[in-house]
Each structure stands twice: as C-alpha cells, then as structure tokens.
Design a protein around this nucleic acid. Structure first.
Lengths: 105, 105
DNA sequence: GCAGACTAGTTTGTAATACAAACCATAAAG
DNA sequence: CTTTATGGTTTGTATTACAAACTAGTCTGC
C-alpha cells in the first residue's frame, strides 16, 4: 500500500510552494509574462514575487530577461523546458497521490 | 483568468506539507493507526513524525490517544471530522488548480 | 540486581524558508 | 526642486521542517 503516497515525500519543493506553483501554472499558459502582470495575477507583494522568481530562475525553471519598455525597466519571464517538465512531474505525482484516496480497489 | 489558481494561495498549509499530507491520506483510509505503523508507512524519523502529529492535533485534524499495548506505551491516531473536511477541501482546491492547466476554454 | 540493549516516543538545536517593510533608481507632474 | 509613480531588489524577522540527542520504561544475560 501507499506507494503513491510515499511519492509525496519526493515532490519538488520548488514547485510545491503555492506561490511558485501559481507562477509556473500561469507561465505554462502564456509563453511569457512581465513582472507586473505576474504580480496582478498572483496578488503577491513585489518583494515576495521577486524572491520567488529568483528561486525559480536559480532552479532553472524560469528564464528571466531584463529589458526596457520605453524608459522603464521590464522583466520578462518564461518557463523553460526544465520548468515545464518539473511542473508536469509535479502534477503527475500530486494527482496520483490525491487520486488514490478511497474506494480504489 | 486564474481564479482557480488564486485558490492555491488559500491552501491549508497544515495539510499542504507533504509529510502531513501523507499522514492524513493514510489516516483517511484506516480509521486508526499507531505511531510505529505511521512511521513505517511514511519513512519519517520519529522526531519528525511526532512533531507533525502534534501539529495536526493542534489544528484539530487528528485525535491522539495514548494507551498501552501490554506494558509498552502506544499512541493511536485518528482523523477527526474536521481533518476529513480539511483533506477533502485541500484535494478539491488542488485538483481544481492543477486541472485548469491548459486547453480549458 | 544491575549493565546493556530495546521500545516508544518527546525535546532541543539549527538551517532553510516565506513574507513584507524598507530601500534604490529612474521618470513624469506640479 | 519637491512630490508622486514605476519597477523592481535587499534586509529583517518569524515560522518551519527535520534529525540528533534525550527521557522513560521494559526485558535479557550474568
């Protein structure tokens, strides 16, 4: 029993954090997004968002590009291939674990 | 967009921790379980398991009963009604968020 | 009967974390 | 030139997960 459950212990902690899960879910649907868009979508504080993005970048899950929109700075974020893989692995693991709750013979 | 995603931010952090999610998932299937059984199933260290159970008890999700098996102490754990509710809410929220990944119009 | 080993846990110390408040740099407005 | 807004980063703090060390009682060998 509980083979799927033990998989929970192996969940990617980078993705597991709700704030970051939101971010990668959003990024998985949009190809690219700027800082303020992400902030509006997630409701995170700037500092918090910055920290999470940095962590996602360090993990290689997100590529961050600093450009300019006119004269203002603009940071653009994209999910990398590794990020997509990590997300789909996470979903698979989570669905498996949550799915195996009851009634499965 | 991303109404379900924002729900991630509201996930119950007590349940969200993988170690504790394992515990409540297990307890949701067995009616009751003793400390060592839980340790074997989860592979957690004793200290860690004890801490998580204490936290689950403090949250009112698990009822802990200290009895004796012959002469040895024996702690028995049960999921409470609140615990079951919390788990099912968590699953609902997570499934909704993870399900809304792509292609949903 | 007492030294050692085992059972069943709890307490303690620590390194990592999430988060927001404070800060920095630039630019337009009054 | 002071204020207000944009687009972020750095710093401080309080929580945390986790394992190592400890406690408390039991059984075995001698």
């Amino acid at each position: 029993m509980s083979k799927d459950l033990r998989g929970l212990a192996a969940l990617d902690r980078i993705i597991h954090e709700p704030a970051r899960l939101m971010l990668v879910m959003i990024l998985s649907t949009v190809e690219s997004a700027d800082f303020l868009f992400l902030q509006r979508e997630t409701q995170l504080s700037k500092g918090n968002l910055s920290a999470h993005l940095t962590k996602l970048e360090a993990a290689g899950y997100v590529k961050i590009e600093k450009t300019f929109k006119g004269k203002y700075p603009l940071t653009i974020c994209r999910l990398t291939a590794a990020g997509k893989r990590a997300l789909s692995d996470y979903r698979a693991g989570m669905n498996k674990a949550l799915g195996s709750g009851k009634g499965r013979p």
